[in-house]
Amino acid sequence: MIVTVARTGGVAGLTRSWRVDVDAEPDTESWLVLLASLPWSEAPHEPAARPDRFLWVVTVEARPVREAALGEQQVTGPWRELVDRVRSAGTAERASGRGDRPGRDAG
């Protein structure tokens, strides 16, 4: 099951994304625990965009696909834990989406 976190905005306006296949991770069950704790129904309808703060979109390709869009200041609690974990364990995708460079996370 693929989990993607995509980040836009920020003063540089760059698009960055990171993805992980939780089924391929050694600690799949702990991923599922974290995903199950995400408060999807309480995610904002529209992310609150503040000047030069990041905007995040969290997508979980479950059935159904779940997606939440959050302003940086709203990425707290389990959302923050998930974003940090995907950035750390996942693969950073090239901005153009041309393909993955495994293991590289340039921040």
């Binding site: 199950a36 704790s37 408060p39 129904s41 309480e42 609150a48 200041q73 709203q74």
Partner: peptide, 14 residues
């Protein structure tokens, strides 16, 4: 916890 519908964060108003 999942069944109880955990929600650990507040939604900030714009």
């Amino acid at each position: 916890a999942a069944r109880a519908g955990l929600a650990g964060w507040e939604q900030l108003a714009a």
